[in-house]
Nucleic acid binder design. Structure first.
Lengths: 155, 155
DNA sequence: CTTATTCATCGTCATGTGACGATGATAGCG
DNA sequence: CGCTATCATCGTCACATGACGATGAATAAG
């Protein structure tokens, strides 16, 4: 299955939680493999970014749309989008003077659905993944992305 | 440490991203529902905490064990454990002068397995969940906890 | 009873992080 | 050809966060 070991070592951006110059040789290898996961969870550990993900589950959005819907400054929204984009979770589709953002990894909905399960187990029932994403089978939490989001663009 | 306040805001009022005096009534309610998820992802967005989770997948550990294995100060490890405990991910089992910690939510393994899927999609293959946790069915990612970990304790 | 071990908590410090405004580049629009 | 809108980036600021050592409580051991 996922027989992988050291590939995340070559990840360029490592500075999320700080990176002490290696204290223990025993922990050296496995610790490095966590960086990608730390990056992923870090991307989702912000209220604004999680809200962006949720908004993008509906349809593509422009930066100005998210700025309006989140009530944040445009630079702040761009920063969050850059964070999500660097994590590979969202894609930017420049179109005219606007830039449409969409979730790039459909597996993300499955992750959010599983997170709901964990939260339910810890006694914090929430709805992260919209209903139309949860209607599918066990692995089918896909956003049904085809004509709906592309029709948003004004061609 | 200061991560006690993560638990403090159970109120609908938001304070994670800063606190502008209420910007949008539309986003007020759903934003509050994200706090638990933000807490969950934040718990996993640290290299040390993720390492602790991974270590606990093998067997229960004492604080001093984790301190030794992580190469961190005891107070630091206790702080991370307090964070994970406040999120409901781990459980503390005081036994004598020691305190054994174990993962409280089995669904967490499923979450980590799904995270691997997302990371594989983004081009960062890593192994978060040990193999013996991934061998089971969809929900069966449990750490086979029975006699092994209890035998560790010196009764 | 005295001592040692384990652990939670407190106080402090350095750094990371999110917020914002300002600025410049790009691309539609009149 | 200007003008405006959109967006990425930069610099700054306030605060959250993780690291550590020190301290005290609880418990096992001598």
């Amino acid at each position: 299955m996922t027989m992988n070991k050291l590939f995340a070592d070559a990840v360029p951006g490592e500075s999320v939680t700080g990176d002490p110059p290696m204290v223990d040789p025993v922990e050296a290898r496995p610790r490095a493999a966590h960086h990608a996961a730390v990056l992923l969870f870090h991307s989702l550990s912000d209220s604004a970014r999680l809200e962006i993900i949720k908004l993008l589950s509906d349809r593509e959005r422009r930066v100005v749309d998210l700025t309006d819907e989140l009530g944040l400054a445009q630079s702040t929204v761009s920063a969050h989008l850059a964070c999500l984009r660097s994590a590979g979770l969202v894609e930017a589709h420049p179109h005219g003077r606007s830039t449409y953002y969409a979730v790039a990894v459909p597996e993300l909905w499955e992750l959010l659905a599983t997170a709901e399960t964990v939260l339910a187990a810890t006694g914090s029932p929430v709805s992260l993944c919209p209903e139309h994403h949860r209607a599918g089978p066990v692995g089918g939490c896909e956003p049904t992305r085809s004509a709906e989001e592309t029709s948003v663009r004004a061609h």
